[in-house]
Design a protein around this nucleic acid. Structure first.
Lengths: 226, 226
DNA sequence: TTTATTTTTGGACAATGTCCAAAGATACTA
DNA sequence: TAGTATCTTTGGACATTGTCCAAAAATAAA
């Protein structure tokens, strides 16, 4: 069980698989296509990843890991709405990096019972941390005190709904747009969902966040025009 | 080009294909499995539907047709928010009837350029009629007059986002729930998205709609308990 | 009855994910 | 250093997939 130089082959396979999956979709890249691309034999790929599922599982693990810190941050005291939205930006960027996964997640969870089981566990966790984050906004006076528990539940539903599926819509509706624009679009949508329930204090946070989105866009344009 | 009795074979194939696709997913039902199920030969299926794509296309056409009237109703004058939400209920029910389609729509649009082209056309139409409907709500005083055009744009985005993807989320998050409950859940979410922007007049419409959802649920429970 | 058209039959084809036995390469041990 | 154990590569087999097609059979039209 050494992890010396020979992990390089395995890692090489993983990296290229992720690239190809992201570009064309998990279902549309065959093991042979992957092997050919790497000048390897099919059996050599299946030596490290006996089943395609294992390759996808590894991708899934890395995405999960990338998002771990972010979601943990939701538990911390004095979280501002600004930070909350900023965190989602990082989550969205991570999802994009492993986009083949969220883009096929319906199919994957349907096809691989293991995935489904594992997903259901973290789904619960995510839900709880999202909920406690939003609850804390009401506590800290960033949401109006008049906001009911039921409305908070709806906010949680909407946030996780958008987080899970923005890439799916974007892949058909905004194919030609740049990823920075797309992420900004859905972050703005997220912000707009929360905004009606904010206090004036919370609203400032949201507005501040929306302002940074616009700034990013400006920067984008300038460096693009150069 | 007669359409006499022999359409029965074709129709039989279509009906069963839809059933199986809905149950297991388009990608996971093979032509042979379908043919075996119908006691037909593979070549006999491909005689009527040379490519799987044709089968999916037919499903797509029928869903489109089922939703046609509904979306046209968005254009009519004096549309109430209640009617608007009720219309979405019908749309959601139609989508469920052809659920294999929205559940694979990312993959389908990615894989079949024809689908993508056609989808982009109706996407534009839908967007426009949705937008004009919501604009009319502001005009008729059901939305607050203070609602900006930008906010209306966000509402349109959110509505179509939910309409397109609720089934995807439901298929992983609410597998064990009944479809009536699921549809009610997402309709309520839709209503809750609009609610913060309504006038008192419009709010009454939304509340009335939410009340009918609850009534449906009661009815559901009673007949279930019998 | 003959002719033309539609439908069914049965199987071929390449591509897919998965699997495996044997050969080769590498690392460890006596 | 020689021998042994482990890891890696090779090359191909297998069943299944979507697609395609020629010939037979059934049906309709003349």
């Amino acid at each position: 069980m050494k992890e010396g130089k020979k992990n390089s082959t395995r890692e090489m396979i993983f990296v290229r698989a992720l690239e190809l999956f992201n570009k064309k979709g998990i279902e549309y890249i065959g093991i042979r296509e992957l092997a050919d691309d790497l000048d390897l034999h099919v059996g050599n790929v299946t030596y490290y990843f006996p089943r395609k599922e294992n390759l996808v599982e590894e991708i899934s693990l890395r995405l999960r890991k990338a998002n771990e810190h972010t979601f943990n941050a939701f538990g911390k005291a004095n979280l501002t709405l600004f930070d909350f939205l900023e965190s989602h930006k990082r989550v969205f960027q991570n999802q994009y990096q492993y986009r083949c996964l969220p883009l096929s997640f319906v199919q994957l969870l349907r096809n691989y019972p293991n995935f489904y089981r594992r997903y259901k566990l973290t789904e619960q966790e995510r839900w709880n941390s999202l909920r406690s984050a939003i609850l804390s906004f009401r506590q800290s006076g960033q949401l109006a005190t008049s906001v009911t528990d039921e409305e908070i539940g709806d906010l949680v539903s909407l946030c996780s709904f958008i987080s899970r599926l923005w890439l799916s819509e974007a892949s058909v509706s905004f194919r030609e747009k740049k990823i920075e624009w797309i992420i900004a679009h859905y972050l703005a949508l997220l912000a707009r969902v929360v905004e009606p329930h904010t206090s004036s204090k919370g609203k400032k946070e949201v507005v501040r966040f929306l302002a940074t989105l616009r700034q990013d866009e400006e920067r984008q344009k300038k460096s693009g025009a150069k």
